[in-house]
């Protein structure tokens, strides 16, 4: 459930911030040659995820590189809960 919500939050965010980005696949890089988020946009995504879902994958040891990483973080949070 959390993963579905997380996916929607990320997709809505990318659609607003990077409307020109290529279609977002699970393994599309979030930065540089992929979606192209810069550090401030990544910071914004981090705050958005925390507000919407109560936890933030960007606070984990490894910064998420793809949508799949973000979904994995929330899947793990759901298991721990």
């Amino acid at each position: 459930m959390a993963s579905n919500s997380a996916e929607q939050v990320v997709r809505d965010f990318v659609a607003r911030v990077k409307p020109e980005a290529p279609a977002l696949e699970l393994d599309t890089p979030l930065y540089a040659d992929g979606v192209g988020l810069d550090s401030l946009e990544a910071a914004e995504l981090s705050a958005t995820l925390e507000d919407e879902l109560g936890s933030d994958p960007f606070t984990s040891d490894e910064m998420p590189q793809t949508l799949r990483d973000i979904l994995a973080f929330y899947a793990e949070v759901a298991v721990e809960a």
Binding site: S39, L40, A43, E44, S46, A47, D56, F58, T59
Partner: peptide, 10 residues
Amino acid sequence: GRANPMTGQI
């Protein structure tokens, strides 16, 4: 300013 793990604050 809101604390943020990427940039310190946003």
